[in-house]
Structure formats: structure tokens, C-alpha cells
């Protein structure tokens, strides 16, 4: 971290935030999406509470459409960190046959992510929910507090945020309310990569460039991760050298063409790029202010 002296300050701040959350939590949990930000968050939790294992379970909302490499990585990492892993899938959604191909990305995301997350949070009655959100991801996140209040129905009210002076987080809750706590609020995408490099944090190999089977849809590269993906007539997966800037459900997450096969190359590419990382996320483009609306509805 010597080259980037602010990384240790970001690390200390994130650890302080996590400890503050755990000190007051009755039922803490960490939302674990298997992505690079989750990897950093889990790493920070291990550091914050060492020599104890992280004192909160990981919660993964599995839409059943994640990349296969992500699921394998998830199970290995959770076991290694000595933390309990809770996996939740919206069974009604599966039974109703909801997929990104048949129902469109908006409906699929609503059922398999937003509703699924609410189900999992209700079941666990969690009061402190750690998330890997960063303010640089998106404009409405740039407005969000580090300890962000959610109503009993998991809604965010952007017009009634609690003031949050200094590092004095108000953690008092009425019955059913909860707090989304974002230790990585002040990190940027470049910070995350530099920290992963400095701390040698394992990440899903999909972040590194490799030859992968892809098809081009609406100008975006979509990876054909399994045989559930319906191909158009005449469409055939091609092998391309690609990688992912963010990870989600494979039909909804576009790859970028890249030769970056090392962390150093990824960092160089991240700093040089002129496109934001959420560009590869299909759900963000669905409509104006879609992120804010999703958050009001309880999507993290």
C-alpha cells in the first residue's frame, strides 16, 4: 500500500465502520455477491475481528443464473474464512419459471433479486446488513449515508436520511427497521483493484481476460455459460478474449474485450478507461433513475 498511501486510511475507516456495526448489532449479516467488492469486504471483516472469525454470516441471494465459476468460488472462500454461508433463492420465482430470457431483465431482477433479498432479510430479521456498495458506482449511491436506514419493508427514503456528522453513526432502530452499512462507501473502483493487488485477495477468475464463448447482443458481449441460454437462429458462440468488470447473472452481465490477464493490467485498464463499470450491467439501463427506484424498493 506504499504507492497509494490512502489505501491504509480507507482500510482503517472500513474496519472502524464494521466494528461499529458489529458492536451494536443483534443480528448482523453480510450480503455477499461473490464479486470483487464482496471479496474486499470479506477480507476486511477477517482483518477487523482477527483472531476471531468474522462474527456475521454471509448471505448470498442466488438467482440460479450466476456464472458457474462464481458458485464454486463462493463455497471455497466461505469455508476458508470460517464463516457461515446462507444461500437464498426465491423458490416461487423458480417454480413460476421466471428467467431473464422469458421475462425480461426488469421482471427477472425484481423477482429473483429484489423480492428474493427481501425474503431472505425478513427470514433472518437482520438489523445490521453490511454491503459492498461504493459511492462512485452510481449517482444515487453517491448520496447515501454510510449507515443507511431501511424501513420495515426495506425501503430507502432518500429525502429523510439521518444526518451523519463525523463518524458518529446513529444505530438506533424501531422494531423492524434495519441499517445497510457500507464500509466501502469512500472507495473507488481503482481503489478496490489496488487493494486487491496489495493484499493479494483471491477473486473470481472471470475478472481476468481469457478466451470465452460469447455472443453479441445489442452491441454487448454476453457469455454463454451453460446450455440454458437460447440462441437465435444462426447464432453461434464465438471464442473471444474477454473479461468482466462486474459480475452478476451471466445473461445480464456483459463482458468487455480485453487482454488484461493480470491485476496490474486490470488496474492500468481501469484507470485508462472512459466507460463506467456499470455499463456492463443491463439492469441499470432499463430506465432513468433505475438504481434509485430499485433502492427505494429494497434492492441494495
Amino acid at each position: 500500500m506504499k504507492r497509494y498511501p490512502w489505501l491504509s486510511a480507507l482500510e482503517s475507516e472500513a474496519i472502524e465502520i464494521m466494528r461499529e456495526g458489529i458492536a451494536v448489532a443483534a443480528r448482523p449479516v453480510m450480503l455477499y455477491s461473490i464479486g470483487k467488492d464482496s471479496s474486499v469486504l470479506l477480507h476486511l471483516a477477517r482483518k477487523a475481528f482477527w483472531p476471531a472469525p468474522p462474527p456475521m454470516p454471509l448471505l448470498h441471494v442466488d438467482t440460479t443464473w450466476k456464472f458457474r465459476e462464481m458458485i464454486a468460488f463462493r463455497d471455497r472462500v466461505a469455508a476458508e474464512a470460517g464463516v457461515r454461508l446462507i444461500v437464498h433463492t426465491n423458490r416461487e420465482g423458480v417454480d413460476a419459471g421466471i428467467t431473464p430470457f422469458t421475462h425480461g431483465s426488469a421482471c427477472f431482477t425484481e423477482a429473483m433479486k429484489t423480492v428474493a433479498l427481501r425474503q431472505a432479510l425478513d427470514a433472518g430479521r437482520y438489523d445490521i446488513v453490511f454491503v459492498g456498495a461504493r459511492r462512485d458506482e452510481e449517482k444515487s449511491r453517491a448520496k447515501e449515508r454510510i449507515f443507511s436506514l431501511r424501513s420495515p419493508t426495506h425501503q430507502w427514503d432518500p429525502k429523510a436520511q439521518r444526518p451523519e456528522p463525523w463518524n458518529l453513526y446513529n444505530t438506533h432502530l424501531q422494531t423492524g427497521e434495519s441499517l445497510r452499512v457500507s464500509p466501502l462507501s469512500n472507495w473507488t473502483e481503482a481503489d478496490v483493484w489496488r487493494y486487491i493487488a496489495a493484499e493479494e485477495i483471491p477473486i473470481v477468475p472471470l475478472y481476468y481476460a481469457a478466451e470465452r464463448p460469447v455472443v453479441k447482443r445489442d452491441g454487448l458481449w454476453i457469455m454463454v455459460d451453460d446450455d440454458r441460454m437460447p440462441l437465435e437462429p444462426g447464432e453461434a458462440p464465438r471464442m473471444r478474449r474477454v473479461r468482466f468488470r462486474t459480475l452478476g447473472c451471466y445473461p445480464l452481465t456483459a463482458a468487455i474485450e480485453s487482454d488484461a490477464a493480470t491485476l496490474a493490467a486490470i488496474i492500468a485498464e481501469t484507470i485508462a478507461t472512459d466507460h463506467s463499470e456499470r455499463e456492463g450491467r443491463l439492469i441499470d439501463h432499463d430506465d432513468e433513475a433505475s438504481m434509485e427506484r430499485k433502492k427505494r424498493e429494497g434492492y441494495f
Partner: peptide, 24 residues
């Protein structure tokens, strides 16, 4: 409009809450 990230802010053309942005 780069930083006024809330729907209400864009519609009313004002800043309601504080936005944080990191840059180098």
C-alpha cells in the same frame, strides 16, 4: 446533473442531499 443524483433533485434542479465523489 453529473452530481445531482436523486430523481427529485433532477426534476427540481436543486441539490437536496450531500453527494460524495472521490477523484484523483
Amino acid at each position: 446533473l453529473l452530481v445531482d443524483g436523486l430523481q427529485d433533485e433532477r426534476e427540481q434542479g436543486i441539490t437536496i442531499d450531500v453527494a460524495y465523489r472521490a477523484f484523483e
